[in-house]
């Protein structure tokens, strides 16, 4: 029995599906085509094989995901990851939070921000810009979305341009989507020994 993880961590766990993933050897040509445009082409994960059950969605979502998180210009990569992390913490998607906290730490070459967020959540001691970004993502992820003029003013006061704010809206909203797949369709479990 795998050990399901319930606490936030930067150690990326394994993901154990609650439904049976598509078997790669049984995939239709359409599923095979969609599986090639995933963010990582090296190995087809159980997560992507699970999403291959709805191949039309998978085929459009993977390039959209990459564009929102990686296209040049606008909000920095680390700050997009912070938007993703804010949403993932609200939705308690332990897996998504781990992946994007880890990416944030690598991009920033430091764990101060994510340590602080995992320890103190909304009371984390952050600089004005990170605080404004995290708060906007956190409030936007509530259901219904609760970011308002106060959170928008904080972003502008922290110096974000309209292009940067738009990228934050997109990256945090994208995790409203990703969390509802990853957290619903599977469990984060302790990594199996190599």
């Amino acid at each position: 029995m795998s050990h399901v993880i319930h606490k936030f961590t930067r150690n990326v766990p394994d993901w154990q599906p609650r439904v049976t993933p598509v078997k790669l050897e049984e995939a239709t040509p359409e599923q095979r085509a969609a599986l090639q445009v995933t963010p990582s082409n090296t190995k087809v994960s159980d997560y992507v094989l699970t999403l291959a059950h709805d191949v039309e969605s998978l085929a459009v979502r993977s390039p959209l995901f990459n564009a929102i998180m990686y296209d040049p210009g606008g909000l920095s990569r680390a700050e997009r990851e912070l938007g993703a992390l804010g949403a993932s913490m609200v939705n308690r998607c332990i897996y998504c939070a781990a992946v994007h906290a880890d990416r944030h730490a690598k991009l920033e070459k430091g764990t101060t921000v994510t340590d602080e967020l995992f320890a103190k959540g909304e009371n984390a001691d952050l600089n004005d810009r990170d605080r404004a970004i995290f708060e906007f993502a956190r409030k936007s992820a509530e259901a219904p979305a609760a970011a308002g003029p106060k959170e928008m003013a904080a972003l502008r006061n922290a110096g974000l341009s309209d292009a940067e704010i738009l990228d934050l809206i997109l990256s945090s909203a994208l995790f409203g989507w990703a969390n509802r797949l990853m957290h619903v369709l599977g469990d984060p479990v302790r990594k199996a020994p190599a």
Partner: peptide
């Protein structure tokens, strides 16, 4: 999976609209 994709997409779309409108 189809149900999750539908609901999850709506969560995204609603938040993009709410954010840009804000």
């Amino acid at each position: 999976v189809r149900l999750c994709e539908l609901v999850a997409f709506l969560a995204y779309q609603c938040r993009v609209i709410a954010g840009i409108r804000l």
